[in-house]
Write a protein that binds this DNA or RNA. Structure first.
Lengths: 119, 119
DNA sequence: TTCGATGTTCGTGAAACGTCGAACAAGCTA
DNA sequence: TAGCTTGTTCGACGTTTCACGAACATCGAA
């Protein structure tokens, strides 16, 4: 399809990351990817049209939160856990903890392994 | 002028906070207020019209990041450090560290004239 | 080569955002 | 009372965001 751009670790902007995390669907996506494992694009489930999902994944990618890898016609998405830890120590953990607590973006899941509901 | 609304600690939404922190000027304001001390509205300096500054302070207040107190015709603003720590442990520190590192919102400052210390 | 699957991009609206200046409201002060 | 100070609100403007369906590009399979 097209080679996409990923910002370098040093280029990841705080305000861009904050903006990316200001939408419940995107926070839901981050939660799904939180374990650092790669997920297939088509595996992701969100209550929006696929063009909209593509848009959200693009925002996350452009902000430097995720990395997209292409393989044939398929895409795989990863949360840039290590890069984020390096650039913003403590931020990811704080966000994920709060997101779990408030159950942000609950309708986002993966086809195979739905996220367990937090007690 | 008007009684403003401040969300309770338990009502502070993660996505609202992230959205509030997605603008450099607002991050600059948070940096200025980071020590937890109260600042006078008129003491704040930012490269925008006062109506715009009022808008930004409103966004911060509505998101639950700051508290506004009125005294006569003047307003005083505080960062809700304790509330934020309680609601989002580790978040504020991570954000401030990154904001300092990237020098976000550098044009925001306080007028460094002596001001009445508020107890 | 043709077909189907997979994401991206485009075109289009509706809504939200950031910005400004002007007008306003509330409280001091002369 | 009048006038000044302080900050909010309003209306306007242009930009950006989010949403959708349709069209497109690319690759693997038939």
């Amino acid at each position: 399809m097209r080679q996409v751009h990923h910002p370098e670790v040093g280029e990841i902007s705080l305000t861009a990351v904050m903006g990316a995390l200001s939408d419940p669907i995107r926070v839901g996506l981050v939660r799904v990817l939180a374990d650092g494992c790669e997920r297939g694009w088509g595996e992701l489930r969100a209550p929006v049209a696929k063009s909209t999902l593509s848009h959200h994944l693009r925002v996350l990618r452009d902000a430097g939160l995720t990395r997209t890898r292409q393989e044939g016609t398929r895409c795989f998405v990863t949360l840039r856990v290590q890069d984020l830890r390096e650039r913003f120590p403590g931020l990811l953990r704080a966000v994920l903890t709060a997101a779990d607590e408030q159950d942000v973006g609950p309708q986002v899941s993966t086809q195979d392994t739905p996220r367990p509901t937090v007690a």
